[in-house]
Design a binder for these strands. Structure first.
Lengths: 287, 287
DNA sequence: CGCGGTGATACCCGGCGGGTATGACAGGAC
DNA sequence: GTCCTGTCATACCCGCCGGGTATCACCGCG
């Protein structure tokens, strides 16, 4: 009468994402009629209309929109339960050591900090093995939610810490990275306004929470690509101070006076009660 | 091969909580043998040992401990999906107005603020109906997690905001509430040390995150009980400044110089995307 | 008017979730 | 020792329901 089954959630999310019973059924590896029936049963059990079936396609009702969001969150929680239990049971990969932690990090971000953290933690008595999970620009939230990672290093203001527990580790300023020969590269310092208004160098755009702000500059997907575009004189970027470590000879970094500071946090699921994780966090905050 | 069913989670959580197949089966309204079999299947599918069956009782393994925590979170998420979808579909209670929001509040806490918030929000164009859900001292987290509430008013440092999104609304100092006739009641101000060391008045103990710290004072369950115990000269309490509004004639409030400030927040699930909720939060932050 | 494409309906079947009866085993009372 | 008791596991059966196939009803379109 009340509790939804995982299967029903999976089915509904598939239909709500595809907005097409046939395609959704294909994605789920089943035939279309039982899927239609399952969704009908779901609507009857909830006492709520989730989909508007116009001939030619399907649309979500307000309630359907809610169930899509909440259902995704619930499916993530279930996947997380599976993954973390398997990991705790030593049923993963080779070695199968107990208490292993998976730490999600953006490639090449906070490199110095990460090295110090790993060294310091490994020196702790009784420390567990830390597996690093390199991930894309804004993937950490998802990895924490669905249990593929147990902790992550995140950087405000780019990442959102909402929904997680976190501790701030370091704060740093930002610099503008310019082609070495550019006139602005000779300046002692710059303001954000300076950088935004260079006519021949449109500001590179990083994704914020997975989407790109509109603008003239190129959309950046990884750090190597960015480095190359800057070196070729096609763009300028605003990056944290610690990014100086991967600059090329053809780059010049100029401090920004008014850019928001970048804070690196260690982040974990709010409900976590793992002692292993607590140890890692303690080590991190003591750095 | 991988995704857990809601039923399996329910079964496992019941067994893990009871540590007894028979009682768990009774709680689930089923017979013991199929429950045993279901747990075995679960262990085989996860490839992990969850329970240690000694004759005479059952114990959780480390992996079982993890699944208990993560499974509870997942079940909460599923319950939340059900409740919020039903609410969005207007399938709840009489009236069935769309976009209704449920706001969880501790009885009598932040009364002034709550009145202002409700008035201001009701005056907004297109505002939804706000249903108030009075709750116990530290129940708000649970209500948000399992979907019985959409938002809550919480007070740091008593409530933990971990896992939620929040906005701070007001900050206030704390006062010591004493029986009117007590010698300390004549003082202009007090320190926490003063209040803690009154030999004839042990400090009342509020639950923090659901549990009571050890101490000599009485365990407080609600505000009326506290008021009475103070009036009878049995205890002294440290409460936020706004609590002056419910004091009796037999009470005296004395400002505390070094008590941590109490911050009232409006709190909501981090993944929420509801426009109605956003409107309420906007109103609240503008107060 | 037929045709393609949509979701819904009708019907059948096999698997599995659940029940009952019973077993295996350890510990306590005596 | 020998019960008895309380625990979880095993064996077996059955009915339900989830899933498949075939088909329908409907609409838009050339």
């Amino acid at each position: 009468m009340d509790t939804l089954e995982t299967r029903e959630l999976r089915y509904f999310v598939a239909v709500a994402e595809e907005l097409h019973f046939g395609r959704a059924a294909e994605r789920l590896g089943m035939a279309q009629p039982p899927l239609s029936r399952a969704i009908q049963q779901l609507e009857r059990r909830l006492g709520v209309c989730l989909l508007e079936r116009n001939r030619r396609g399907v649309r979500l009702t307000d309630a359907g929109e809610v169930l899509l969001h909440e259902g995704r969150a619930a499916l993530d929680a279930i996947a997380a339960a599976t993954r973390r239990t398997r990991r705790a049971g030593g049923a993963d990969g080779p070695g199968g050591s107990r208490g292993r932690l998976v730490l999600a990090v953006k490639a090449a971000a906070s490199h110095e900090l990460l090295r110090k953290l790993l060294d310091a933690y490994a020196a702790e008595p009784g420390s567990a093995e830390i597996e690093l999970l390199p991930c894309g620009i804004c993937e950490q939230e998802e990895l924490l939610r669905d249990g593929r990672a147990d902790a992550a290093l995140m950087h405000t203001p780019w990442n959102s810490l909402a929904g997680f527990d976190s501790e701030a580790l370091t704060t740093e300023g930002q610099v503008a990275v310019l082609p070495a020969g550019h006139p602005l590269a000779a300046r002692e310092s710059l303001s954000l306004a300076d950088v935004r208004d260079v006519p021949d160098l449109p500001l590179a755009r990083w994704p914020t929470r997975g989407t790109y702000a509109p603008g003239p500059g190129p959309e950046i997907h990884n750090q190597t690509q960015l480095a190359q575009l800057i070196a070729l004189g096609r763009t300028v970027a605003v990056v944290p101070d610690s990014a100086r470590s991967w600059l090329w000879a053809e780059h010049t970094a100029v401090p920004l006076t008014d850019a928001p500071p970048v804070v690196t946090h260690i982040v974990w699921p709010a409900h976590s009660r793992s002692l292993t994780l607590a140890g890692l966090v303690r080590t991190a905050t003591r750095l």
